[in-house]
Simulated scan of single mutants.
Amino acid sequence: MAGAPLTPGSTIGILGGGQLGRMLAVAAIQLGYRVIGYGPAGDNVAASSCDEFIEKGWGEKDALADFASRCDVVTWEFENVPLTAVEAIPEIMLAPHPRALAIAQDRLSEKRFVEDLGARCAPYSRVESDDDFTRAVESVGAPGILKTARDGYDGKGQWRIPTLHEAQGIRFPGRPCIYEGMVGFETEFSVILVRGKDGEVRFWDSSANTHDGGMLVHSVLPAGDLVESQVDEARKIAAQTAEKLKYVGVLTLEFFATKQGPIFNEMAPRVHNSGHWTIEGAATSQFENHIRAIAGLPLGGTATRFASVDMRNIVGNDALSAHRILGEAGEPHLHLYGKREAHEGRKMGHVTRVSHDVGRDLP
């Protein structure tokens, strides 16, 4: 990972074809780089923003090796890229380091990793059988959430357990899981940082986040007094995580703001939905700074440019009438991702509203 910054015209490879890859590609092209994307055949919305997109499977090692041979650095846009696919690419070309993926892809490893750094987590127990599940619910208590240890995101692979009685009706799904006790929290917030190749770390302001069914739907700044009182402690954990991993790029840690302080929820070794507001709302977006970091360029400023910022996801069929947003108040900035099919629970875009007035009522 050492060496001179990538010169204009160099090629950045992106594993994954979703909207995060699309926005990373736009940032990379603006900085003068070529972009090659890679991912299985499907609705790869990143392809329209890449110079080239290779539709091949994660298990096709020859195709992955050929892809890597044409790139100067390779990154990823989501944390569920199979490790076997990443291992087909020379480690020296990858940013961040794949150890971040290995930890983030297993909820138990993730929690143990941050606990070793001093973070607090909700009570939890590993579950690998029906008997494990019964014991976990009895020891951790209810309400709680049963989550698959791997491959879950946006509320997928999760089952809420309101009471001990209702736990009896849930069957173990047949793959490793983790059972977590519910945390009494005031709000959720994320810490998003970028770490350069030289070890410099910069943070964006933390947004207060609202989820529905496990999916982020709303991020707002300022985040409120409770979050702001807990950001420093959460940032220390995030910075220690980045340092321990020798991380390069954008890293996100999500927390619950509780009366007892910040409780770690999960980590995303990538750009993050709760940071979409940075495109219009920050001096340098999370996407541009991720590209700067992996290319070895100086990091850009992360200061918030407005007094109030409000980002909302556009989900499912709401995308079909999203253009009406442009006629609303609050300086709306609309981003539609170009996905072909709108269905329930699918992120189709987002809208960010900014204001120079603190506390302005943004629609």
Rank of each mutant, 00 (worst) to 15 (best):
V217P: 05
V217Y: 11
H218V: 00
V220P: 01
V220A: 08
L221D: 06
P222Q: 02
P222A: 03
G224T: 07
D225P: 00
D225A: 07
E228P: 01
S229F: 04
Q230H: 05
V231E: 03
D232E: 06
A234K: 04
A239H: 02
Q240D: 10
T241L: 03
A242T: 04
E243M: 05
K244S: 10
K246Y: 02
K246G: 10
V250K: 03
L251W: 02
E254W: 05
F255R: 01
F256C: 02
F256R: 02
Q260A: 13
P262A: 11
I263Y: 08
I263S: 06
F264A: 02
M267S: 11
A268Q: 02
P269K: 04
V271H: 07
S274C: 12
G275D: 04
G275N: 07
W277S: 06
W277M: 06
W277R: 09
I279G: 09
I279V: 15
I279A: 10
E280M: 11
G281S: 12
A283F: 08
A283S: 14
S285T: 12
Q286A: 03
F287V: 11
F287K: 12
E288C: 12
N289F: 00
I291G: 09
I291D: 10
R292F: 00
A293V: 14
A293I: 09
L297P: 14
G300F: 15
G301E: 15
T304Y: 07
R305I: 07
F306R: 11
A307L: 12
A307V: 11
S308R: 15
D310P: 03
R312F: 09
R312Q: 14
D318S: 12
A319Y: 05
L320A: 08
L326S: 04
E328N: 03
A329Q: 03
E331S: 15
L334S: 07
H335P: 01
L336Q: 00
G338F: 07
K339W: 08
K339I: 07
R340F: 11
R340C: 09
A342F: 00
E344C: 01
G345M: 03
M348H: 07
T352I: 09
R353C: 02
V354T: 14
H356D: 14
H356Y: 12
D357E: 14
D357W: 10
V358A: 09
